[in-house]
Design a binder for these strands. Structure first.
Lengths: 199, 199
DNA sequence: CGTTGAAGCGGATGGCTTATCCGTTTCAAC
DNA sequence: GTTGAAACGGATAAGCCATCCGCTTCAACG
C-alpha cells in the first residue's frame, strides 16, 4: 500500500509543502505551486515532483477532512434512530465542509487526481447510501431519494450559504437551509407538488 | 443612456464578439479573450477595447438571460395566488439559469463589472423580495425568510443539480430539489427542528 | 466627390505565470 | 569512507494575458 518509503529529507519537504498548502487553503489564498514553493522556501521542482498538479496537493490537503467525514458517517451508522443518524450525518458533513475549504471542491468533483481520494470518496458515498437506505427502510425519508441526491444536496446547501455571505454567517445559514431541505426529504413531505404548473 | 453611438464597423465587431462569447458559454468553453478574438477573426486589441475583462464580456452575454429573469419576476407578480407566484418565479429562475450558463455566475456574484448589470440584478432582488413579501403576508411562507435567502437557495438548487450530473439530467434534478426546498419554505414546515442535537 | 481627422483596428511585443530540464547535493546502504 | 541512487533547486523554456502604437476605415463637411 505504502509503495516506496520516502527518504528522510523528502518526507520532511512533503510535510512542509502540505502544511503550507493547508495555510493557503485556510487563508483563502489560491493554491499555486510556485507560491507554495516560495512560501515553504523549497525549490519549485521539488514541489512539482511531490505534487504534479494543484489538484494533487489539494486532495492531499483535503484528506484529513474527508477522513473526518467518513468517521462521522460511521458514527452516525451507530445511532439508534434512523432519521437522527441520517440528519446528523448531513449536518456534520456540512459543518466539516465549512470548516475546511479544501473538502468541498474535492467532494463535489467528478474526477479525482489521486486514487486514494477516489477510494475515500467512494467509501463516503457508500456510507451515505447506507444511512439513506436505513432511513428509507424506516419510512422516514421519501423512497425516491438516491445517495447521489444526498451528496448533491449537501453540496447545494454549502454552496447556497456561500453566496453573498461572509464566512462568519455561513454556519448559521447552512443550519437553516439544511433544516428546510430536511423538511423536504421527510417521507411525510413527499410529492407535495409545491410547484405551480407553468402558465 | 446610450452614451456614444458606435461606428458601423465597431458595432459589427462588438456583435461578433458577443456572438462568439455566447457560443463559448453554450459549449462550456472557458471565456478567454484571446481565444474569442481568434475564433471571431478579430484583433485581440479590438476585443480588449470593447471588453476590458472577461467579466465584462460575460455580463454582456448574460444580459438577455437576466432580462428574461426580470420578465419572469414581473409576470409572477401578476399572478393571483401568492404561493404560486413565489414558487413559479423560483422555478422559472432556475430553468433560466440552467438554460444559459452565463446567468448563474453573474447572478451569484457579489460585485459586477458593468453598472447596468448591477442595476438589473438589483431589480431582480427587489422583485423577488416583493414576491417573498406577498407570500409571507399571505402566511404561506415562513416569515423568517429573507430575499437574500431566496437568492441563495436558487443558486444552491442550481449548483446541487450540477454536481456529478450530465447537462441532460439537470432539469429533472432541479425540479425535484426545488420541490424539496419549497416544502421547507412553507410556513407549515416552520421550525420543524429536523436536525438532531449534536451528541 | 475629395479631404480630413477622429475613431477604430490589429499584430507585434512585454510582463507574468506555469512547468521542466539538468547539473549538483544529500542520504543511507554496505 | 565510498558509492550510487534518490532528491534537490535554480535557471529557463513554454504559454497566457494585456497593452502599445503605427496603420486603416469611417463619416462629416466643404
Amino acid at each position: 500500500m505504502t509503495s516506496v518509503p520516502l527518504r528522510k529529507d523528502a518526507a520532511r519537504n512533503w510535510q512542509q509543502i502540505v502544511e503550507v498548502g493547508r495555510r493557503f487553503v485556510d487563508e483563502g489564498v489560491p493554491l499555486r505551486l510556485n507560491d507554495v514553493a516560495r512560501e515553504a522556501s523549497i525549490g519549485v521542482a521539488t514541489v512539482y515532483r511531490h505534487f504534479p498538479t494543484t489538484e494533487t496537493l489539494l486532495e492531499t490537503v483535503a484528506r484529513p477532512g474527508l477522513e473526518n467525514l467518513v468517521t462521522e458517517a460511521n458514527r452516525a451508522l451507530g445511532a439508534d434512530d434512523a432519521w437522527d443518524a441520517f440528519a446528523g450525518f448531513l449536518l456534520a458533513g456540512i459543518d466539516i465542509q465549512l470548516a475546511d475549504a479544501s473538502v468541498q471542491p474535492v467532494f463535489a468533483a467528478s474526477t479525482h487526481a489521486l486514487p486514494e481520494t477516489a477510494e475515500l470518496v467512494g467509501r463516503l458515498h457508500a456510507a451515505s447510501g447506507e444511512l439513506l437506505g436505513r432511513a428509507q427502510a424506516s419510512g422516514v425519508v421519501r423512497p425516491d431519494l438516491t445517495s447521489q441526491d444526498v451528496v448533491r444536496l449537501m453540496c447545494g446547501v454549502v454552496f447556497a450559504a456561500t453566496v453573498h455571505a461572509s464566512p462568519g454567517e455561513r454556519a448559521g445559514l447552512t443550519r437553516r437551509y439544511l433544516d428546510m431541505v430536511l423538511a423536504g426529504l421527510r417521507a411525510s413531505a413527499q410529492s407535495a407538488s409545491s410547484v405551480a404548473p407553468r402558465p
